[in-house]
Design a protein around this nucleic acid. Structure first.
Length: 681
RNA sequence: GGCGAGGUAGCUCAGUAGGUUAGAGCAGUGGAAUCAUAAUCCACGUGUCGGGGGUUCGAAUCCCUCCCUCGCUACCA
């Protein structure tokens, strides 16, 4: 075993947004892999700190607060505490779980802002922003929806179209609507500061390239970066008009806060500062963040890639340009994909999924940690299935790992007074086992170093499999009668293997691992030494306990049936008759029809609805030709808000039925004797 | 329709500097054993590596094309 240099490692996990409870998907993405990595690093003897905390600013929190008619502080306090507790119960080993509402963070974020401002980096731009007179607030991009002036995308944001990627002035956006009140917002002048990311593009590309060359970034992360670089990095506003957040530290900046994307990533630094204070080591944070020796690894989910590979590094570069105390940049950003739940996306609003606290009320954390770790979305989205959870718990943790430990311990107690028996003459089978065990820590360590956690977990269980085989092949239940020394040797080797198992499994199932150490009355050792045999002959063992209880089919079936009922309830949500009365279903006669140029599915129709004429655009071109529609009596929704499709105004919606054939619909035809304009009731 | 990801044994998946008989876990079948949480161990797969075409001495692995699935997004009004 080569002596490895002690590394200085800084690990962060994405700051969860304090606007809801974390669910299993969150754990799989950014938290469990990081925790496994960190626990391994600690066992290895590296100097590591692990930082996380709640992200507590931004508009969604204010909206939740408004909905509940409480202050945003109530919301963030609630979710900060809940999530903190969930992480604790799950066994997350953060050195600190901080939050972005604390003064240290406000100060840090303001320092960065001020530094960029004072050095003339930030560009001030006056612009017309949407203002919702009813909600009395400026509307952030994502709360304004309208039609993109360039490509006609109807769900474009106020200054940017995600469809075609074009940027424009809010005044160019067509048909703006406030997503908060539904009102048409007015344009009001305001001014904001922008971070010119374009200035950093070349350096960022070089940075990503070099880090990848030296440390092997994940393919999905690189793809994402390439996409952003290809489009060219744009100026990004770093302030917002809002009263919830970190105040812009300038004169005449009333009502302005630092945009949450700018400050949230700095929360990692602030949290480390808070840790410094708590430990009463004022320079601790600098020893990591401003130490070129530090290896900084940022664990995140795929939705967060751009912030950690482009924006945050750009901010740190900018700081480093103007200051003598220079920050290090992420050395690796091992972003995971997403975890789905029983084949579908987690969805809070649809009640799909299980949140962490809910889960841990029913089951202990280790089986969950193991199941999630064995199935991490490292390369692609994966699923959490209740059945898989059961089979991993019963078939692997209980049957393979737990049972091996149990059968070994019962042997030690039945035949060797609960003490570690001595080793006598070694046969080939023993030597092979000893050699095998010796190599496992390094094998697994190498996988974890390369962020191949899933493979590492598989190897951990493989050692337990091999241990069972060794036990079987050695047949101690026979040797105990014929050759006690042989039996003693076998049990000694098995007990030492259990020691190694306790250590290598610690990052994944720390609670159980601790129980095993207790049973062995032993302590953790250095990771790379854990494959060697440490148990002294004659050492007194503690009585074994069952480490994993089996999960009955009944319990899993209950969960599955709860899912079923939960989902149908939300899908078939009942409406009142008043809800229905809002919809004006009306008979109309088609007078003209033509294809919309350049469109596959759209027809432009002129409809006669009794007293007036109206134009409707309908997506039925694949099912009907314009000619066959003319003269038909059909049913439409008459009081739908007009919308523009392909630049053509549509003043209603034609009702049609799905058919078995894909993309084919059947319009609802009304008896020709009914005159246009009649309403359905 | 656009973008992205994927289609490999019944299920979940691994498998890129292209090279002998394509792998693992689970499930299934048969067997061994009985110390142990009825837990373990061994043996067993003629899989069109989505279809077709191409490059190559040789492709699951590279190129083209088509089909299908999922996600996001859309002309779902």
């Amino acid at each position: 075993m080569e002596k490895l240099k002690k590394e200085k490692v800084l690990v962060t996990s994405a700051l969860p947004y304090a606007n809801g409870r974390i669910h299993l998907g969150h754990l799989s993405g950014a938290y469990l892999p990081a925790d496994i990595y960190v626990r391994y690093k600690r066992l290895k003897g590296d100097d590591v700190i692990y930082i996380c905390g709640s992200d507590e600013h931004g508009v969604p929190i204010t909206i939740t607060a408004d909905k509940e008619k409480v202050s945003p502080k109530i919301i963030i306090d609630r979710y900060h505490e809940l999530n903190k507790k969930a992480f604790e119960k799950f066994g997350m080993s953060f050195d600190i779980y901080s939050r972005t509402s604390i003064p240290i963070h406000h100060k840090t974020a303001q320092e960065f802002f001020k530094c960029f401002y004072d050095n003339g980096l930030l560009v001030e731009k006056k612009s017309m922003q949407f203002y919702d007179p009813k909600a009395k607030m400026f509307l952030p991009d994502r709360y304004v929806e309208g039609t993109c002036p360039k490509c006609g995308n109807e769900e474009a944001r106020s200054d940017e179209c995600e469809k075609c990627g074009s940027l424009y002035e809010p005044s160019e956006l067509k048909n703006p609507k406030s997503k908060i009140s539904g009102e048409t917002p007015i344009l009001k002048e305001t001014s904001h500061w922008y971070l010119p990311l374009g200035k950093f593009q070349q350096r960022l590309e070089k940075y990503v390239d070099e880090m990848n060359k030296n440390y092997g970034w994940k393919e999905n992360v690189l793809q994402y970066c390439r996409g952003w670089f290809k489009d060219g990095l744009k100026d990004r506003a770093v302030t917002r008009d809002l009263d919830w957040g970190i105040k812009v530290p300038l004169e005449n900046a009333e009502g302005k806060v630092i945009y949450v994307w700018f400050e949230a990533v700095l929360g990692y630094i602030s949290a480390t500062k808070e840790l410094s204070e708590k430990r009463n080591e004022p320079d601790l944070w600098k020893n990591y963040w401003q130490n070129p020796e530090t290896k900084y690894v940022a664990f995140i989910g795929k939705d967060n890639i751009v912030f950690h590979t482009i924006i945050f590094p750009a901010m740190l570069m900018a700081w480093n340009d103007y200051n003598d105390d220079k920050y290090i940049l992420p050395q690796n950003v091992p972003a995971n994909e997403f975890l789905n739940f029983e084949s579908k996306k987690f969805s809070k609003s649809r009640g799909w999924g299980v949140d962490v606290l809910e889960f841990l009320d029913m089951f202990p954390p280790d089986p969950l940690r193991y199941t999630l770790a064995a199935n991490l979305p490292e390369n692609k989205d994966t699923d959490f299935y209740w059945k898989e959870f059961q089979s991993r718990n019963n078939g692997e943790l209980a049957d393979i790992l737990g049972n091996f430990i149990n059968r070994t311990f019962t042997f030690a107690f039945k035949h060797f007074d609960g003490k570690v028996p001595p080793v006598y003459e070694l046969q080939d089978i023993d030597k092979e086992m000893i050699e095998l065990v010796k190599n496992y820590p390094e094998k697994i360590g190498k996988l974890i170093e390369r962020y191949k956690i899933k493979d590492a977990v598989f190897e951990m269980m493989n050692l337990a499999r091999a241990a069972n085989k060794y036990f079987n092949d050695s047949e101690p239940w026979i040797t105990v009668k014929k050759d006690k020394n042989r039996c003693a040797t076998t049990i000694n080797i098995c007990l030492n293997t259990i020691y190694t198992l306790a250590e290598i499994f610690e990052p994944v199932i720390p609670f159980t691992s601790q129980k095993i150490f207790n049973m062995l009355d032993a302590e953790k050792v250095r990771w790379y030494e854990s494959g060697q045999f440490h148990l002294e002959t004659g050492k007194v063992l503690k009585k074994p306990e069952i480490l994993f209880t089996k999960i009955e089919d009944k319990i899993i079936d209950e969960q599955l049936s709860m899912l079923d009922s939960g989902e149908t309830a939300s899908e078939d949500e009942l409406i009142t008759i008043d809800d229905f009365k809002k919809v004006k279903l009306m008979v109309a006669k088609v007078t003209e029809a033509e294809k919309v140029p350049k469109s596959d599915k759209l027809l432009k129709l002129k409809l006669h609805t009794g007293n007036d004429e109206r134009q409707v655009v309908a997506g039925i071109a694949k099912s009907y030709s314009p000619e066959e529609l003319i003269g038909k009596n059909i049913l439409i929704v008459g009081n739908l808000k007009p919308a523009k499709l392909f630049g053509i105004e549509s003043q209603g919606m034609i009702l049609a039925l799905d058919t078995d054939e894909k993309e084919r619909v059947k319009i609802i035809e009304i008896d020709p004797s009914i005159s246009p304009g009649r309403l359905a009731k």
